[in-house]
Design a protein around this nucleic acid. Structure first.
Lengths: 244, 244
DNA sequence: GAGCGTCCTTGATGCCGGTCAAATCGCAGA
DNA sequence: TCTGCGATTTGACCGGCATCAAGGACGCTC
């Protein structure tokens, strides 16, 4: 992990929460910036109907909170037992005066972290379930993965239901697709909260194109040309995939 | 419409495009800010598979383009014959020196306009087709609607396929749901590029909750309480709706 | 006004993924 | 270790929406 944006000297409070407890909720007065020390925070919104939409996850080193941008727009809850440090209103004002450039950088990072990325929107609007999950696991690998003997060991701090609400599907489907990826030997499940990426190239291909391409045959750039319907193969060839 | 952010004196170029022609594409060097004069611009991304995802639409008065934030992240295309004015690199630099506050405001507006809103994400991830369309038409009404004798007359500058790619559905489904709303007498279709909102309260309720509530019985705030599955009624009672 | 291409509407069909249900797993506390 | 509860897995079923297909409407150009 790179050097965190905020140092101990900046911060004025530490907070811990067990799983599913909020750090703050939508509409709360803000003025503070939070930095994840350990665990995983989910930024989410509730719909009128009581459904939950997880906009993003924050991992150690990430900052969140609206700071100077007004009242909070989302709920921030612990996806697992988590600890965050807080730069409160006063400390933020102080930093804005003493180090305006860095303060702005912190505020921008915290603000940007809770905006949904366009990639996320593309994924949840079009991709089939298997591609959504492949995309999520691949990005989790990039963010949290630890290389171990050519494979990538990745923490999975959040529950299946959290993933589901992040990708616009149900936790049952998350579970099913996870099992499918395991059967294809693309990932290996190590208990409930950890997994291994066994074939990163295949996972990446599945995440990007929704199909299982081998790493030596990258889909041609010409496939970027416009085509009204996606004619990509939508079926798994388990045998071919396992042989790959 | 409120006073546009940019005045004629600021701008250094006008550009026109017929439908489906780009103003710029993802990856183009930026440094400019654009303001819609007439028509409708769609900001979109293409997926590897050649599918299109419309992140947002820009209407007259809106600004877009990344300005000082680096190369363009999206395609900007005319959703119908459109005209935009452009504040180029030099003009932007000049404004940043002479009126930094306003320049920053312009840049922020343009930047924010092409970030997907969290409301949009919530909609496309969970809502059924009828609710998605109701939400889109209602927001279009708020943005472009002209009150005419208690009803709201709204331009619909983009094609069905554009709406579909914005909401994560197919243009056939957009068409079907549009017909359904017309049959329910919630909207009235006036040709292909214009419609009337006949019963705004019902449309709004459909957009927010996915169900048809009458305006006198607003869904109670307590419904915001957490419930893992949305048990809201998913069926249309055409008779009851028409009677309302 | 005729002709033509594009966009839109509408129908028929099939499948993905949501829903309901039940069994199993995993963890924490007694 | 035992017990209990919540999380996860797995199965069965089915409904909404994508897909395929055909016909109609609209807006061009000539």
């Amino acid at each position: 992990m790179a050097k965190p944006l905020l140092q101990t000297s900046d911060l004025d409070l530490f907070m811990s929460r067990p799983r599913n407890r909020p750090f703050f909720s939508e509409g709360d007065p803000s003025g503070a910036i939070y930095q994840v020390e350990s665990g995983c925070i989910r930024l989410q919104k509730m719909t009128e109907g009581g459904r939950r939409c997880v906009l993003s996850f924050c991992y150690p080193g990430d900052v969140f909170g609206l700071g100077t941008h007004g009242p909070e727009q989302v709920d921030a809850e612990a996806a697992c037992a988590s600890r965050v440090s807080r730069l409160g209103h006063l400390g933020l004002q102080r930093m804005l005066q003493s180090e305006p450039t860095r303060a702005m950088k912190v505020i921008d990072a915290a603000y940007g972290g809770q905006e949904p990325g366009s990639e996320h929107v593309v994924m949840i609007s079009f991709a089939p379930a298997e591609q959504k999950l492949a995309w999520f696991l691949a990005s989790l690998g990039q963010r949290l993965g630890q290389s171990v003997g050519g494979e990538l060991l990745v923490d999975l701090p959040m529950m299946r239901a959290d993933i589901a609400d992040h990708l616009g599907m149900t936790f049952e489907t998350v579970s099913r697709e996870m099992t499918k990826l395991r059967d294809l030997k693309i990932i290996d499940l190590l208990g409930l909260r950890k997994f291994k990426i066994q074939r990163a190239a295949v996972l990446q291909s599945l995440a990007l194109t929704g199909s299982l391409a081998t790493s030596r045959h990258v889909p041609s750039p010409s496939s970027l040309a416009f085509s009204p319907r996606m004619p990509a193969p939508r079926t798994f060839d388990l045998a071919a995939a396992s042989a790959g």
